[in-house]
Design a protein around this nucleic acid. Structure first.
Lengths: 225, 225
DNA sequence: CAGCATCCGCTTTGATACTG
DNA sequence: CAGTATCAAAGCGGATGCTG
């Protein structure tokens, strides 16, 4: 485990537990995907050394952040999942991701990418037409598709394709990410090679959420289709 | 600088910049105390190696998180301060500190302590009697006193003593911290050795803020004096 | 004294190979 | 699939020395 800072301070104490390299990225995987096998985690963490993943999982279990469970057949494998204490890191993750989002603009082309990571920016979105019927958008930015479900004012994402989606977006991860963050509009993205088929209104329902706001805000910006 | 994770993900990109050991603790010092000299930083970061502090300051400057300025006489020294981009880490810091607060209960006696760190938990407080006149509480938990100013619904802290404070709290850091976090009430703290002199009502105005709430909440708990 | 830079021993990480 | 084992490289902690 990371050396303790040995300081009587809540920030330092937290960093004693979650400040190690790779630790918060493991939490990211479990937050996005739910329970994962060891191999799933390794696939979602390109660049991690396998011994380091094993060590972190042990430490996180000791710290009460994750729990391992033996899944019954037909899975017959060890599953790692967040405990409530681990799930409580969601606010931390959201703040860090929000702060880091502008850095994506300068990301090198060589960066690794996993399709399900698109769920992180999607967490910062809200549905600004909660009275409309639910819609689903399927995102194809990598090997496996991701579905965005927009309903009743909230936005959820899950891994996997969707039956009969209202819209399908296909293209490069960075382009799709920029559209979801509202950095560029759909017209520009299309010019850049993004394909969007289906109901454009579904995309228009997505709106960036204000920082730390759990209630309404005055932010009434709309994205132009 | 920390090795990049090389992942196209806002969280990973943020951690490329702020994930290094000591980095967020340096930001803590600058958030609490404002512009600092090198020596001030070192005093507020017990345990850091001086070369490491110099290296981190260089990296943080490159990353646009801090700026150094040459202070004019009579200070005549280099001052480090947060840029707006660095100050934008406040939400991150608050979330991490909030998550880490429960860990303080198990902190070893050997932990280092600086009086101004008390400003971190104080950031999670609000004034639930905004119509009352402003009050000031002076906290003496270490070498230098800290003043908590409660006025117009908000709570602010600053380093240094106060002229004519409405109340003065003196005692061990962990006890004072527990009182401010609402973990124990004043009677228990007094039994544990905390001294409180002055207007008890001033302390009663402090109330824990709900997570991520910038507006009113339904949390109407009161602390018993 | 403020603000570093250098050196050295120890720990952590990264890359790869191997195993039940 | 779910890890261990091994080893080189990088990072860190502590001490000390240098410069305006």
């Amino acid at each position: 485990m990371m050396r303790s800072y040995g300081q009587y301070c809540a920030l330092a104490k937290a960093l004693d537990v979650i400040g190690d390299r790779w630790t918060l990225l493991i939490v990211r995987e479990l937050l996005i995907r739910g329970a994962c096998r060891y191999t799933d985690l390794r696939n979602g963490l390109p660049g991690i050394a396998t011994n380091l993943l094993a060590e972190r999982l042990r430490e996180l279990e000791e710290a009460g952040i994750i729990a391992r469970e033996e899944a019954p057949p037909p899975v017959a494998s060890t599953l790692f999942r967040l405990t409530p204490r681990g799930a409580a890191l969601e606010g931390v993750m959201e703040q860090i991701a929000r702060w880091g989002a502008p850095l994506l603009a300068a990301a090198p082309k060589s960066d690794a990418y996993c399709a399900h990571w698109i769920a992180m920016p999607a967490r910062h979105l809200r549905d600004h037409a909660p009275d409309q019927p639910p819609v689903r958008i399927e995102l194809r930015a990598g090997d496996e598709p991701v579905t965005v479900e927009i309903a009743n004012g909230s936005v959820r994402t899950r891994c996997g394709a969707s039956e009969n989606p209202d819209a399908v977006m296909t293209g490069m991860p960075r382009l799709m990410s920029a559209v979801l963050r509202g950095e560029i509009d759909l017209a520009k993205a299309r010019a850049g090679g993004l394909r969007f088929e289906g109901d454009v209104q579904a995309l228009c329902r997505l709106q960036p959420r204000a920082v730390g706001a759990s209630t309404d805000t005055n932010d009434q910006r709309r994205r132009s289709p």
